[in-house]
């Protein structure tokens, strides 16, 4: 699709004024967006790095006076044992699990939707939309309520089924805490994948599948040998976007009982950065954590950027 439109408009328009306008015009069109990106993204990006090299407290933030300490914040972060045992595993492990969960479930649902009749497809996709529409904050409170230790419906149900003797507080244990976060994030995230993959699936020519079926390929083979390659781009996009979203999950952890810092075993990079900066007034330290989070994400996504651009320019 890209090849067809990259035809240069300017070549076809002989008049000189047009040509000149065409060199200036893209920049005029880009100017507002670039200005916004420069002021609100690039400069803050530089600044967060500058802050991270300082002992930046409340005093510095109000007066704006620098207080350089070199890489001390980074040294301290890297020397924090919890970074390696708690924070990074929580951030990284959770992102991997939730991306996998979201993409697998979303794809499965897309395949299921594609095989349904119009009525059930409408019903199901409306339900999916409802899940998608639930804001993260709302969703988090709903899950917290469902899993509430004393009065939540989950414990109630388990106890009346005889699976549980006494109420359990699921929020105090690191694994069950993140299991709930995972449920929350997948519930909120899989609809995007499902809708996107479904749209892609509907574009796969059926003849290819029928041909494969005649060759005796099973449905799994058909899925992996025909659909997956056809939807390579689609998967690249949903995986990368899910990765971005799941790495920086904040509200879904922060708003859970114990998630705002009192339960240290559930800290992730985002929450850690927030509680250190806005709770402890250590904006420099918090910034250094933020820089690490950014770098981590950039490294993970750099590969994708290169693939997409490489295809683009071909």
């Amino acid at each position: 699709m890209t090849q067809q439109v990259t035809t240069q408009l300017t070549e076809k328009l002989p008049r000189l004024s047009r040509a000149r306008a065409a060199t200036v015009r893209p920049w005029l069109l880009l100017a507002p967006a670039l200005a916004v990106l420069a002021v609100l993204l690039l400069w803050p990006l530089v600044r967060v790095f500058l802050f991270s090299l300082q002992d930046y407290g409340l005093r510095e933030i109000t007066t704006g006076e620098p207080n350089w300490i070199g890489v001390e914040n980074y040294a301290q972060i890297l020397a924090t044992p919890e970074l390696w045992t708690v924070v990074l595993p929580n951030t990284f492990g959770f992102a991997v699990l939730s991306v996998a969960g979201t993409v697998v479930l979303g794809t499965g649902v897309a395949v299921l939707l594609a095989s349904l009749g119009t009525f059930w497809r409408t019903v199901t996709s409306s339900a999916i939309m409802a899940a998608w529409a639930m804001p993260a904050v709302t969703g988090t409170y709903v899950w917290v309520w469902i899993f509430d230790a004393d009065r939540g419906v989950f414990n109630d149900a388990l106890m009346s089924l005889g699976l549980l003797d006494d109420p359990t507080n699921w929020f105090t244990n690191r694994w069950t805490f993140y299991a709930i976060v995972l449920l929350n994030v997948i519930h909120h995230g899989f609809p995007f994948v499902a809708v996107t993959v479904l749209a892609g699936l509907l574009g796969v020519p059926k003849e290819m599948l029928e041909a494969a079926e005649m060759d005796g390929a099973g449905s799994f083979r058909r899925f992996f040998s025909i659909i997956v390659p056809q939807l390579r781009q689609v998967f690249a996009v949903v995986i990368i976007l899910s990765t971005i979203w799941d790495f920086k999950v904040f509200a879904q952890v922060f708003l859970m009982p114990g998630g705002a810092g009192s339960n240290r075993s559930v800290l992730n990079l985002g929450v850690w950065s927030y509680v250190e900066s806005f709770g402890q007034n250590r904006y420099g330290f918090g910034s250094a954590i933020a820089v690490l989070l950014t770098l981590l994400l950039l490294v993970v996504t750099a590969v994708y950027v290169r693939t997409v651009l490489a295809e683009e320019e071909r």
Binding site: I244, T294, L298
Partner: peptide
């Protein structure tokens, strides 16, 4: 544009707050 999309804006809370 692509790279900027990858930057976790949440990481920029502190400088954006100052900004």
């Amino acid at each position: 544009v692509l790279v900027v999309q990858m930057v976790p804006l949440e990481a920029l809370v502190i400088p954006l707050f100052v900004q």
